[in-house]
Structures are given as structure tokens and as C-alpha cells.
Computed example of a mutant assay.
Amino acid sequence: MKKAAGKKLAAGPQQELLDILEKRFKKNMTRHKGIEWEKVLAKLEKEPAKLWSLNEMEMTEGEPDVIGFDKKTGEYMFCDCSPESPKGRRSVSYDPEAVISRKEAKPRHSAVGMADEMGIGLMTEEEYRALQELGKFDQKTSSWVLTPANIRKLGGAIFCDRRYEHIFTYHNGAESYYAARGFRGMLRV
């Protein structure tokens, strides 16, 4: 997540993004009960690189929104709240190593690589399950989630989706990619 350090939006695009985020925040108050927009805004204005990352999430159709506050770190948690896995982040393998290892029909990118360039992290399985308690996500698509090192070492990666009113976790080869599989990002501000 280091690649976003030092990047920032110009004043016009920054204000446009803040307007979008505020409108989404106020429209979806059930995602962040007890959190005030003014406090979120104050944190965002102090961290231009995080605003740049949120803009990247927005530009790839992730519809980022606040989903919680970490009392231990004092950070607001933003994640992609688009109904389906973000359109601009689909058809990617799990990580850069998976792209390299694929012999034919290589994907254009990887979830881990793209997240790193955007300055965000992949959601963990636990974060993904917590998001699903706030709404119904990935009913037609699926999303790569952060894979434990022991699974990745053996060539696998995990992804999740919602089907039949249940949250499923599956595995696949890390080099696989599908038109309906992308990833959801997490950003702490």
C-alpha cells in the first residue's frame, strides 16, 4: 500500500469526491451508526494520499463508504460497497506471482498488485463477512479476499460471495481469473 504515498488530488476533483462520499454516507446511515460525517471529513482532509486512494476506489466503481470505526487505532474504515464486485477490478488473478506463473492467456493484472497501486488492502474473510451484515453484496459476482500465507504458498487463493442468503468462502488456483471475480478494498483513515 506504499504506492499511493505522496499522491493527491487537485482541489476540484477532491471536492467532487468529498461531495460524492458525503452523499453516499448520508444515504446509507445503517452502515455507520453513531459516526458523524464531520469527524470523517476532518480526518480525510488531513490525509491527501488517502483521498487519492478513495478516488481510485470510486473510479473503478467500488462505491467506497465508511463501515466502521476502530477505537483502538482511531481510524475510520472505508470499503467498497458496490452491490457487485467493482467493475473496474474484475478479471484479475490473485497476486503478481500468479500472473507471472500463468503460461497462457495472462490476466491484465492481479488483485494484490492493483490494490497496492491504489494504496488500499484486500478485505480479509472476516471483514468480508462483516460487510455482508450491512447489506447484500456479490450476489452475482465474487471477490478475492486476503489469503493466508500457508494457502498461498501451496498455490491457492480464496474468494467469497453471497448465494442462497449464505456467505461462502471458496478456493481456486491463484492464477485463475474470471469476468465475474474482482476484489473489494479496505482503507483505514
Rank of each mutant, 00 (worst) to 15 (best):
F137I: 03
T147P: 14
T169N: 04
K3C: 00
I20P: 01
K136H: 06
G185Y: 04
G74P: 10
K106N: 02
E97N: 00
G185P: 05
A42L: 08
F183D: 05
R129C: 03
E84A: 12
G156V: 08
M77F: 01
E127I: 02
Q15R: 15
L131N: 10
E97D: 03
F69E: 13
T169F: 02
K26D: 12
A105K: 07
R108W: 03
R90E: 03
P107V: 03
P13R: 11
R129K: 15
H171Q: 07
I35C: 07
E58C: 00
M77I: 15
M114E: 08
Y164L: 15
K8C: 11
G62P: 09
A115C: 06
D161M: 08
P13F: 04
K7Q: 12
E117R: 09
Y76D: 07
G113F: 04
R181F: 08
L41Y: 12
A98N: 00
N28A: 11
E117G: 07
K136Y: 06
M57C: 06
I151G: 01
R90S: 05
C79I: 08
K8D: 04
A179M: 11
S176C: 11
M118Y: 09
E45P: 00
L41F: 12
Y76V: 04
K7I: 01
E38S: 13
L134Y: 04
R162L: 12
S82P: 12
R162H: 10
D19N: 14
F69P: 13
C81S: 10
M77Q: 13
G88I: 03
E133Q: 15
A111K: 04
S82A: 15
I167L: 05
A179V: 10
E22P: 02
E38V: 11
F137L: 05
E58R: 07
L17W: 08
K26E: 14
F183W: 13
S101T: 00
G156I: 09
E58W: 14
R184T: 05
P83A: 15
L122G: 10
S91A: 14
Y170C: 09
F168C: 07
Y76H: 12
